[in-house]
């Protein structure tokens, strides 16, 4: 467990951090929470020449509501901040459901949502949640800023769309078109284990009718999977049982799980359908009552 030799930089401002990235290019790696990067370095799966620790950069630890039910999450906002957030409950039900399920309490004290998106592990929880919510990532470099939808940000297994000189400085949840509901369910063999399968559902409804829906899948493919057709099947509905069943089938159909020590491919696909059904069935009760 002895990492390769590396240079350590701890800039105090974002400009300094961006300058270091501009200087070192693909040799450099950003250290935020370090909960994936540091273990990979200790195993020598990752051997960055320069580690740019942004933990001393002020103003990145925030998460705040934006008008119309949106949310901004800074690059140093820890999982634990979201778990204990007063902003999420009610306003962001899918995120609020996922926050206590991320990794384990020890990892949650250090790890960050933005770091989880950047790591692009298909078993990461936040990528599914943000994908279901239609979220995006703001990338900064000395050349300026750009906003990348999560669906384009995660480009493959452990691959994101950042250029070598860019830092992901925040994640953004857009304003809602209706009342938010939804949840996140994850099957894990043990607290802190990577997901066997996970399902994020983000719904927006007006008078009980779904006006926007997002469904995304964790751990059942080479990258986080958007179950677009399944989500589309919900729009215009009031989550009647046949619609729920249809969405569950469609979501399971786009899953591309592999048989491994967490379960067979058939089983994981079945869990996806079960979780979609469970989330939507639970959501139907309050929605139906409001109608």
């Amino acid at each position: 467990m002895y990492p390769s030799r590396f240079r350590y930089e701890a800039p105090r401002t974002l400009d300094e951090a961006l300058a270091l990235l501009a200087e070192h290019g693909d040799e450099a790696k950003i250290l935020a929470g370090g909960q994936s990067l540091v273990p990979m370095m200790k195993l020598r799966f990752a051997a960055p020449g320069v580690l740019v620790d942004i933990n001393n950069v002020a103003g990145l630890g925030f998460h705040e509501e934006t008008p119309g039910g949106g949310l901004r999450v800074g690059a140093l906002c820890r999982h634990v901040d979201l778990e204990h957030s007063t902003v999420l409950p009610g306003a962001q039900p899918t995120m609020a459901a996922a926050a206590p399920l991320v990794a384990d309490p020890i990892v949650r004290t250090r790890g960050t949502l933005v770091g989880s998106l950047c790591h692009a592990d298909p078993q990461g929880d936040w990528a599914s949640v943000m994908l279901a919510l239609g979220g995006s990532v703001v990338a900064a470099s000395r050349r300026g800023r750009r906003t990348i939808p999560v669906g384009e940000f995660v480009v493959g297994t452990f691959q994101n769309a950042l250029e070598h000189d860019e830092i992901a400085v925040e994640a953004v949840v857009p304003a809602a078109q209706g009342v938010r509901s939804g949840s996140y369910l994850k099957l894990e063999r043990r607290v802190g284990d990577f997901a066997t399968a996970g399902v994020a559902v983000a719904l927006e409804s007006v008078s009980g009718e779904i006006v926007r829906a997002g469904i995304a899948l964790t751990g059942v493919g080479p990258a986080t999977i958007a179950a677009t057709e399944a989500a589309q099947a919900l729009v215009g509905s009031t989550l009647d049982p046949d619609v729920v069943d249809r969405a569950a089938e469609l979501a399971a159909a786009v899953a591309r799980p592999r048989t491994d020590h967490r379960g067979t491919a058939d089983y994981k696909r079945h869990v996806v359908a079960t979780f979609v059904r469970r989330i939507l069935t639970a959501e139907r009760a309050p929605a139906g009552a409001a109608a």
Partner: peptide
Amino acid sequence: LLPDRVWHAAHTGQDVSGAPPFRTE
């Protein structure tokens, strides 16, 4: 007794062996 083993057994009515080699794709 991993969840997938229990699920497969319950759904097929068949015993589930855990003997190696472990099946992966």
